[in-house]
């Protein structure tokens, strides 16, 4: 990183001598939301993440990029323990949310705080309204007017309200692909998460729908920390404050997005983003 000024290297990849406590200390100083320390991840006998240490700042958009199979989606899923739904997986290391070990807290409570939106929109076979209200109902909220209020607020935050307000009780499947994806974001927002994880949320969308989602992320980030996995580097460049590059299960480089795309410190990053990789 010899070419970067000190102020450009705000957040670096912790070296081997850095402890997770350093991350916690920094989190309290510079508003970090998630501190990952020395994370290793295995699918059965196969290790897919190697000693990942990364500090995700609060209320910023962090993009994770890298070639297929580099481990970025696995990493994302670990952040709300979604990997536990797959048999034979094993995560070692520490993931702290506001300084709290996520493996030590109730997983349902964790996922309420850290929501996820997937690559393929996956609305439930229910009405638009019921999709957004679902999380509230399973959280035992019974007050119907309060639920209606939160549904409207969430649909507004997901920039979908104006398009669906007159047919909230139609099936979610009647919506276009882009609208379905925003509905899934509204559903995630209904329980007011502190962190929103998105795994290639625009890969199946046309440029107009993609632009709406990107605008939405830029609006949401004032109230929510966002981590997005994307194959689209222009998307990372457009929306992310910070970008991390993964390769073969390792975090190669993490820095401010404009530094990563204008002047990356690592040759592997340079080769990947300029298309000279492989």
């Amino acid at each position: 990183m010899g070419n970067l000024t000190e102020s450009e290297v705000i957040i670096g990849v912790p070296g081997p001598d850095r402890t997770i406590q350093d991350s916690v200390n920094e989190a309290s100083k510079s508003a970090l939301k998630i501190a990952v320390g020395h994370l290793n991840f295995h699918y059965g006998p196969r290790q897919v993440l190697f000693d990942i240490s990364l500090e995700i700042p609060d209320r910023k958009i962090t993009a994770l990029i890298g070639p297929s199979g580099c481990g970025k989606s696995t990493f994302l899923r670990t952040l709300n323990r979604m990997h536990e739904t797959v048999n034979g997986t094993r995560a070692e290391g520490e993931v702290l949310l506001d300084g709290q070990d996520i493996f030590a807290i109730d997983v349902v409570r964790l996922r309420r705080r850290v929501g996820m939106v997937f690559q393929k929109s996956n609305p439930f076979p229910k009405s638009i309204f019921e999709n957004v209200a679902y999380g509230l109902k399973i959280n035992r909220m019974a007050n119907r007017s309060a639920i209606a209020e939160i549904v409207e607020k969430s649909l507004r935050r997901a920039a979908l309200w104006d398009e669906v307000k007159d047919h909230l009780h139609k099936s979610a499947y009647s919506l276009s692909g882009g609208q379905q994806q925003r509905l899934c974001i509204a559903r995630a927002l209904a329980v007011d998460p502190e962190v929103l994880l998105l795994d290639e949320p625009c890969s199946a969308l046309d440029p107009v729908a993609t632009a709406k989602i990107e605008d939405l992320l830029l609006d949401l980030v004032s109230s929510c920390t966002i981590v997005i996995v994307t194959h689209n580097m222009q998307q990372a460049a457009r929306v992310a404050d910070y970008t991390g590059f993964f390769l073969l299960g390792k975090l190669i480089e993490f820095n401010k997005t404009d530094v990563i795309f204008k002047n990356p410190a690592q040759k592997e990053t340079e080769d990947y983003i300029t298309g000279r990789f492989g």
Partner: peptide, 9 residues
């Protein structure tokens, strides 16, 4: 080409 890094520079 929407170039990045050294190509963009």
């Amino acid at each position: 080409q929407q170039p990045m890094a050294a190509d963009l520079r």
